[in-house]
Amino acid sequence: MKKSVIVMLSMFVMGVGSFAAQHGMNKGGEVPVSVKNAFKKEYPQVKKVKWDEEHGKFEAEFKLNNEKISATYSSTGIKEETETSLNAKNLPKNAISYVAQNKYGKIKEAAKIVKADGSVVYEAEVAKGDLLFDHNGAFQKLVVEKD
């Protein structure tokens, strides 16, 4: 009897985990209601969203008007930034020139990041990491992610 209860409980827990994974919940559990509400208020037309949690921040990945977008929120639902994918040729010309002049190679991905204060940063992903540029395309820094 005890074994069957344990087996049933185990199956229930696995089922809940599977359901959570299929419905965009993070590994740590449910996306906070404040975050979901903030997202729904700003993007009511978005029906399909994938949530991820990293370092206490919640990132919503979705498509809007044929653009791949991610919006990052604090755990209290305050939007910190929005990142919109770009074709590399749409980066500021100064950024494209910097990548070529410094022999960083091919730009794998590019994005426009709008911070909560309205400031704009451009990102160019290259083999060595992410190159960040200001709104005019002036180089700011290279960010290398550690595995």
Rank of each mutant, 00 (worst) to 15 (best):
E83M: 05
F12C: 12
Y122A: 04
A60L: 05
S34M: 10
D130P: 06
S34H: 05
I107P: 01
W51K: 00
L131C: 08
E83R: 02
K40D: 13
H23S: 04
T76D: 14
S119M: 07
S34Y: 06
L64M: 14
K93C: 08
K47V: 10
L131V: 07
A100S: 13
G28I: 07
E125R: 09
E30M: 13
D134E: 07
Q101L: 12
V120H: 06
D134P: 01
K50A: 09
E80H: 00
M11A: 13
M14K: 00
K112P: 02
D134F: 03
E30I: 10
N136L: 09
H135W: 06
S34C: 10
N65A: 15
G118S: 04
V35H: 00
S85V: 07
T82G: 00
A88T: 11
E83T: 05
K40C: 08
G118H: 03
I78L: 08
K79V: 07
K48L: 09
A127V: 13
T76A: 15
F58A: 04
A110Q: 03
E54I: 01
G56C: 11
N65M: 11
V121W: 05
G28D: 13
A20V: 06
A71E: 08
P92E: 09
Q22F: 13
P44M: 13
V120S: 02
F19G: 09
K40G: 08
N102C: 12
G17A: 14
A20N: 13
S85W: 03
M25G: 00
P44F: 15
H23I: 03
E59T: 03
G129I: 02
G56L: 10
A88H: 07
I107N: 02
A127T: 14
V46D: 09
Y104S: 01
A111L: 01
E30K: 11
E59V: 02
E53K: 02
A111R: 04
F139K: 00
K36H: 09
H23W: 06
S34A: 14
T84A: 08
A95V: 09
V46Y: 15
A95P: 10
A124P: 02
V35T: 02
Y98R: 11
E61D: 12
K93M: 07
V16R: 04
D52V: 07
V35S: 01
L64Q: 14
I96R: 11
A127G: 07
V120D: 06
E59K: 00
Y43L: 04
N90K: 12
K103E: 15
N94L: 15
V33M: 10
G118R: 04
N65S: 14
A127N: 13
W51Y: 05
Q45L: 11
M14E: 07
S119R: 08
A110C: 06
N37K: 13
K27S: 13
Q45A: 12
K40S: 14
A38Q: 01
G24E: 03
N136G: 08
F62P: 00
L91F: 03
D130S: 11
T84H: 02
K108P: 02
K27P: 09
S119C: 00
